[in-house]
Design a protein around this nucleic acid. Structure first.
Lengths: 202, 202
DNA sequence: TTATATGCTTACCAAATGGTAAGTTGTCAA
DNA sequence: TTGACAACTTACCATTTGGTAAGCATATAA
């Protein structure tokens, strides 16, 4: 009865916060700046979320949920682990390219978590990473790997795709927007090859 | 005659700043915190560097120089582009693992550059990236690729390695430090395979 | 001895930060 | 009509931010 219906402004706050946190990071974003985006005062934000940290938490929780749902869909699709991983790589690449802001958010969380974790302990991406790691371990090629090795592999894929996904400003500046567009269109196929190389043939 | 001899405190400031910027990011690090590290006041820092942004610039300039030197060494070693890239991957992996703070710094710069570039235009990593891109284009396998495609490849490698390199806290927390150590020791070999897959056989 | 410059500190400062307290306004149920 | 609650705003506040101004000590050069 409380948080069921998404009070519109709450959602708007989360959306504005998501974009700004992605762009400027947690410490680079003030709650006043977020509120300004909606033409409201920062106290409205405090009213809804209690604190900056909690708002950030909600942003990341939503992101985490979205990815969890993606993973569930992929799991539900069934098939051998290799296929599921291949589908994940494709989907993740697609999401990373269409939502570079979310990719930035994840990268920032990866960087900041260590030190913010001391204050507000929440490792939002853990279930997401665990799920992937387990799938890698189901693979024929990696069934004898240790869990951290499997996670290292996951990091490799995530890192490769993420770095490209956030490179748009740089690539556009260095080579022009049209050249970038062409590269971007051709990229998913490259990722497919990459995934093949990582997780072995079907 | 001025900046030739590295006034020791100046160097100490740069070193302390490097660590804190890597750990907390530009906006998360106050000049007072940096100065505290040396038991000095923030005004001493201002005295030496003029502003926070300039200090940050020096930190990144040094990092950039270090990498440029690495690249020069590799170029000087000669051999086909494939060999040079392979050597780069090995070296970069080594550096990334032994200096995760520098890796963090680069990731943060990649994330922050877009918006800070508007204020203080400096794209410190550009020469580094250009050099690598050109080497990729010399490769037999990628000689027909477009420059942005080549840079995308570079990003893939950097991303894969960097993500793993900064994952130490996460991996240690999830699996314990000893398991992490084992994984880390085994990692360079994996990167070698990765590089092989990317840039083709010798 | 005096002048100058370096390396620092104390004393400030305006602006921005996250957050509290106390309203005000509107809506909806009893 | 009244009461209560939700959604805000205005008014504050202590703290921290990056930075300026001015002074002090030491060393070095004239």
């Amino acid at each position: 009865m409380t948080a069921e219906a998404p009070h519109d402004t709450r959602t708007q706050f989360i959306e504005a916060a998501r974009q700004l946190f992605a762009e400027r990071g947690f410490y680079g974003t003030s709650i006043a700046a977020i509120a300004d985006e909606l033409g409201m005062t920062k106290q409205a934000l405090i009213h809804h979320f209690g604190s900056k940290e909690k708002l950030y938490g909600e942003v990341l929780a939503r992101l985490s949920n979205r990815f969890t749902r993606v993973l569930e869909d992929i799991e539900a699709g069934g098939g051998p682990a290799e296929d599921r991983l291949r589908r994940f790589c494709t989907t993740f690449c697609e999401i990373a390219l269409t939502h570079p802001d979310d990719t930035r958010l994840i990268m920032r969380e990866l960087l900041d978590n260590r030190q913010r974790a001391e204050q507000a302990d929440a490792w939002y991406l853990k279930p997401f990473l665990e799920n992937l790691t387990n799938t890698v371990l189901e693979t024929e090629r990696w069934q004898d790997a240790t869990p951290p090795e499997a996670l290292a592999l996951v990091y490799n894929v995530l890192g490769a795709v993420s770095y490209f996904a956030i490179s748009e400003p740089t690539l556009s500046r260095m080579f022009g927007p049209t050249e970038y567009e062409a590269t971007r269109r051709a990229y998913p196929d490259k990722v497919a090859l990459l995934a093949e190389g990582f997780f072995g043939t079907a």
